[in-house]
């Protein structure tokens, strides 16, 4: 039986009630994707988060949706989110300008295993907007570079104009302490890089499978094929982590929407060690 005693409930403690934030910066990344830098309207520090956690961002008055934090953990004054405009709420967020307000609640969810990955090769595999939730891991590993062995990022975008964080990627690619590979599904005249799905990049890199911690984020099919390719290269499934997505209304395990078999993705995930979700991962319409 759940104990009911304890301090009296306080309306301002509700995880379902958001706090106002102000847009400090709005950056267009691509035609449909943008990055918001948000600071608490009331001043003070922003919410603390761990890489892989998400917030429910409320675009007034359309509603709220889960969006991962894409900025570095050490920026205590702001929250940075990178968002692809696909529907009512994200399109409302896309209309925001500097000085406008958004409502934020969070952070929610289980983060990427950055502590477990210490002493290992870190392999980040991202598809599309999936690069945004992985960017805080990249920042973290670069900041604590000596705690990790090699760092490899494999990133697939639909077309060259869909590539996120272009300038930052160019800087990362210039560094010698990480390898950052980009591929596109469909090329155009401007593109001289690799063309093909992200799993093809995986076939081209060297791997020490038993010492690799792989973190994968992207559409479910992309994660499916990445997982198979990693298995083929000998990476144990207990060293593969995936970030799952389902409809979310609450973020705290009380609305039921995000269920995937026995899991509430909002609180048991979104990041899962693959063996935990293996039995439900590819079940159709679950």
């Amino acid at each position: 039986m759940i104990a009911l005693a304890g301090t009296a409930p306080d309306a301002t403690d509700s995880a379902l009630v958001p706090s106002p934030y102000v847009v400090k910066r709005f950056v267009c990344e691509t035609d449909d994707t943008f990055t918001l830098t948000l600071a608490p309207s009331a001043g003070g520090d922003a919410l603390r988060f761990a890489p892989g956690q998400f917030n429910m961002l409320y675009g007034f008055p359309a509603g709220d949706v889960p969006i991962s934090v894409s900025g570095p953990t050490w920026r205590k004054d702001v929250l940075i989110h990178t968002i692809r405009a696909v529907g009512p709420v994200t399109k409302t967020l896309a209309q925001l300008q500097r000085g406008d307000s958004v409502l934020v609640r969070g952070p929610f969810g289980v983060p990427w295993p950055i502590a477990n990955a210490e002493g290992q090769d870190v392999l980040l595999v991202a598809g599309g907007i999936g690069l945004a939730p992985l960017r805080p891991v990249l920042y973290h590993v670069l900041k604590h570079r000596r705690r990790y062995r090699s760092l490899t990022v494999l990133y697939g975008a639909r077309t060259p104009s869909d590539i996120l964080f272009r300038q930052e990627i160019a800087k990362w690619q210039a560094r010698s302490d990480l390898r950052f590979e980009v591929t596109v599904d469909r090329s155009d005249a401007s593109w001289h890089g690799h063309v093909g799905v992200v799993t093809q990049l995986l076939d081209r890199i060297e791997l020490s499978p038993l010492q690799t911690c792989a973190m994968v984020c992207g559409p479910e099919v992309m994660m499916h094929f990445t997982r198979l390719a990693l298995s083929k290269r000998g990476v144990p499934s207990s060293q593969m982590y995936l970030s799952m997505e389902r409809n979310m209304k609450c973020g705290v395990g009380s609305c039921g929407h995000c269920q995937l078999g026995p899991f509430f993705i909002c609180k048991d995930g979104p990041v899962f060690e693959y063996p935990r979700i293996a039995s439900v991962f590819s079940v159709k319409e679950l």
């Binding site: 306080d10 706090s19 106002p20 958004v102």
Partner: peptide, 11 residues
């Protein structure tokens, strides 16, 4: 204007 205020429901 651009500011949003949130008033939680009473307990």
């Amino acid at each position: 204007g651009p500011a949003l205020t949130v008033v939680p429901e009473q307990i």
